[in-house]
Every structure is written in C-alpha cells, then in structure tokens.
Nucleic acid binder design. Sequence first.
DNA 1: CTTGACGGTATTGTATACAAATGTCTATCG
DNA 2: CGATAGACATTTGTATACAATACCGTCAAG
Lengths: 227, 227
Amino acid sequence: MEKAATPRASDIAYDKIRQFVLSGRAEPGEQLTEEQLARISGVSRTPVREAVRRLENELLIVRSDSKRLFVADWTAGDIDEMFVLRGMLEGHAASRAARNITSRQIEELGQISDLLDAAVHANPPDVAEFLAQNRRFHDIILDAARSPRLSAMLPMLVEQPVVRRTAAQYRTDELVQSAREHRELITAFAARDSHWARAVMTSHIRRAFHVFSSTAMRRSEQVQAND
Amino acid sequence: MEKAATPRASDIAYDKIRQFVLSGRAEPGEQLTEEQLARISGVSRTPVREAVRRLENELLIVRSDSKRLFVADWTAGDIDEMFVLRGMLEGHAASRAARNITSRQIEELGQISDLLDAAVHANPPDVAEFLAQNRRFHDIILDAARSPRLSAMLPMLVEQPVVRRTAAQYRTDELVQSAREHRELITAFAARDSHWARAVMTSHIRRAFHVFSSTAMRRSEQVQAND
DNA sequence: CTTGACGGTATTGTATACAAATGTCTATCG
DNA sequence: CGATAGACATTTGTATACAATACCGTCAAG
C-alpha cells in the first residue's frame, strides 16, 4: 500500500493556486492577493506565501514593481524561449540518463510506453491519460539523470502553457509520432548511447513546440469561430 | 543619487545566511535550525523561512528526508555538472544577448573590461575586484539576453563553490586569459554574431571549470602541507 | 546483545495579530 | 483644468504563540 503522506498546508496551497492559475480561472495579468489565495486554498496566509514564492520562481506568478502579485502572462517569444531551454535541459537529462539509467527503469519506461500507445489508440484518444503518462515518462528520465540541479530547474519549464488549452486540440497523428519518439528514446537508453538519447530528446521537445504552436493556432481559430 | 531601497528582513536573512554558508563558517553537512539562522541574521523565523526556501532552491541548503535543514555538500561530480549546465545556459544567454544587446550595454562591458585589466595588472593582482567586476560583466549579459527565465535559473548555478576558496589561489596567467576572453565576447557582441558569442562563452565557462579544478587541487595540496 | 516501544525534547509548520508600505481617492491650490 | 498633497483603504511584511511532527535516548523484553 502506498504511503498517505501528511498533507502540508503549504503544499495544498501550492497545488490549488497552481491549478487556479493554469485552469484559466484566473486571467493572465489579473491581480492576486494573498488573502484571496488563502481563501481559495483554505489555509492561512503563511503557507500561501511559501506557495507563492515557489510559483513566483516558476514564473507562473509575477510581482509588480513592488510586491503585488499578478498572474503571469506569456508572449509567443516567452513560450518559444521556454521550449528552447527545455530542449537543452531535457536533452542534457536524457544524455545523463543514458549513462545512469537502470534496467529496472528501462522496463518501467517500456510499460509506460504501452500505456501511451493504449491512450493514443483508444477511440477517441484519451489525451488526458496520454499527458499524464507522458509526464511520468519524463519524470523517470529526470530521475535517472541523477542531477538534483536539473530536477530543480526543469519544473520551472514544464507544462506551463500546455495545460491551459483543452486536450481536444491534439491530432491523433501527432500523438502517434510522439509515442514513436518515446520508443526510440527507450532504444537509445537500452544502447546506453548518450548522444543518441540527447538528439532524440532534443528533437522530441522541439517538435512538441511546433505541435504546440499549431494547436494554439487551431484553438484561436476555433475561438474566433465561436465569437 | 541612487535609491536607498528599504531593507526587507527576508533579504537581510538571505544575504546573511548565504554568506554564513559560503564563507565556510558552516561546515558542509552541518545541521542548521531556523532559530539559529534567525539569531544569526537578527530577524524572526518567518523571513528566515523565506530566505531558506530560496537557498534551498539554489541547492545551497538541503532538506533531510523530512524537513531538517543542512548545509549542502558538493561532490566533484556535482561541480562538474554545475559547470556543464552553466556552460549551456550562459552560452544561450550570450547567444540571445548578441541579438538584443544595446550599444550602451556594449560600452558598459568595455568599461568593465578595463577594470578587469586593471585588477589583473595590479601588483599584486586584485582578485576580489576581478571577481566583482566579472560578476557585473556576466550580469549585464544576462540582462541583455532579456529572458526572465534565464535570469531565474542562472543564479542557481553561479559562484556557489567558487566563493568558498580563498582568492589567492588564482594564477595571474589565468586571470589574463579570462580577461582576454571577455574582450573577445565584446567583439562578438559588437558584430552581433550570436554563434560566435555562444562559442566564446561556452569555452570561457568550460575553461573556468578547469581553472577551478586545478585551484581546488592546489588548495588541497596547500592544506595537506599545513597539516 | 539486539530490537522495539515509549516518552521527553528539539524542530518545523501554521495561524493570528500587528506593523509597514503601497495604492487610491478627494479636496485644494496654482 | 491639471497637478499635488494628504488622509484613508488595501495589501504585503514581520513577529510571536501555539500545534504538529520528527528525533533520540532509555528501558524493557526477547
């Protein structure tokens, strides 16, 4: 049985606020007060402050000239930049992982890959499941990289603008290709080929960026159509 | 006249604790209690906690399995990894800076470069001044890169193991070479050549790593001699 | 001698009260 | 009419008290 870790109020606050921001219930640029966030997360301001510090560090929340909190708002340039950094860092993580990964972990990646395939080929494709397993996949690689520093830095980059859009925007062929790349990564890991792993990961992330861009466009077209 | 910003207690705590850790007054692996840190920095536990969160994020302080604080302790592998990441990120920063830097900023870099030369050629070389100006130099580049994300991530990597050793460990020829690379960076910026800038910066950081390794060795030899 | 349970102590986590500071509105003056 | 100063409201920052949790030594049983 899994351990039922004690829920720390500051973690609760972190999750709730994060979800509040990413779900789009808070508009980009909107002001947030600590008290409001305390109400939302059901704890006092003290743990909220800690949570806010973390989110601020992830640039999900920004502080105005002096100390007032706002929901971050992303330019296209920010997002591009973010994917570039993710490409570098995840590429590096993959490279390290190829050297350090255990066969147990490779097995695990294989199982996740099966789940990814299942999610893709479901009818209709189960995109939420796909994203969840995709995240697990990348987390294992990060773990295998054995770099506390990478583990601290990557969360600042992952899935920030991704979550906001609805899952329905993905096309099946994109998911298929993504799943294929995961398989290739596993092969590279099994071969302990760090250069291969880095290259596959880098292009994987970069392609994700273009998928993101095009789905963002699709979405805005859809929004226009709804107006 | 420059603004005399209000000193926030949490910033005071951050500076004091950081200095406490980096100066070597705290042994790596040693436990730190919030109350002790509060005494040291002269504020209450609340701002200390915020400061600790930041330092924890920079991996200068680590949390034991549950919640007790310890001074981080670095393996050779950690330091190597850190310089690799710095190389990637500062290289990327230089690349962006080459595209975005203003002529005003290039001038500023030139002035700092003069100060670097002066510090190197003083007799004896003024290493503290060199390090201070070096830091200003890199900060300007980071600023010119215009990426809030890089600005958030790089502080996690800079000068952590560097400060602990005494300045006297540097050799003059190393400082001369470093100053030369700064000049070359300026040239690359002036030419707006992002590839050149990235390459120079990458090798600059990588060379710094090897200088660091050798000075660390020199230092340990010296310590052995003193035993 | 080892192991495990118990309880005291040290340390971290949270809430609340209050202080400092920032923003905003209004009234008055140029 | 616009600008500015001052009072008021809102928001963030800090300290303290208390609660919850983890650690560690002790003691008893196997």
